[in-house]
Computed example of a mutant assay.
Amino acid sequence: MSESTTVATTTTSAVATDLVAAGESVFKAFTGDEMSANAQKISDGITKLIDGAFPTIEGKVSFDLADVLGGSADVLNGVARLVNGAKTKTTGTVAAAS
């Protein structure tokens, strides 16, 4: 029984860490700057909050919260990639339409 608790905690931590890291990547994509020490402390606190509240919230919802949060992290990573791509000027030429 304690083994399944360990697995759930590991999964929860991974979900929280991935989601917050994705948010940080969006911040960096938009600003071009690293987070300040104070912002990093807030980010770490949010990670701990999500990690601590996850089991309680998951028990009260009728859907797979881990998948929803994981999908949210994927979306945030996609936004960061989109913003970085929009900021990067390509050196190639665009072929003319015929």
Rank of each mutant, 00 (worst) to 15 (best):
K89C: 08
K28M: 11
A53Q: 11
F27W: 04
G78Y: 02
V20L: 02
I42K: 11
A73K: 02
T10Q: 15
A29W: 03
I42D: 05
T9M: 08
T56H: 07
A95Y: 04
T6I: 13
I57N: 03
N84W: 04
E34C: 00
S98P: 15
T10P: 11
A22P: 06
L69E: 05
L19K: 00
G92Y: 12
G45R: 05
S36K: 04
S4G: 02
I50E: 07
A16Q: 01
A22V: 00
V20C: 09
L82I: 14
A53R: 13
G52C: 05
G59S: 10
G71P: 11
A14L: 10
M35R: 12
L49V: 07
S62L: 06
A8I: 03
G78Q: 07
Q40P: 04
E34V: 03
E34L: 04
T31E: 04
T6E: 09
T47V: 10
A96F: 00
E34G: 00
A73Q: 08
N38P: 08
L69D: 01
V68Y: 07
A39Y: 01
L65C: 04
I46H: 04
G59D: 03
D18G: 07
A37G: 08
S25H: 06
V94S: 12
T9R: 07
I50C: 00
D74K: 13
V79D: 02
K28Q: 11
S72R: 07
I57F: 01
L49M: 08
D51F: 03
K28I: 05
G59E: 12
T88G: 05
A14H: 09
S72A: 12
G59I: 02
D64N: 15
T11D: 15
A16P: 05
F54L: 10
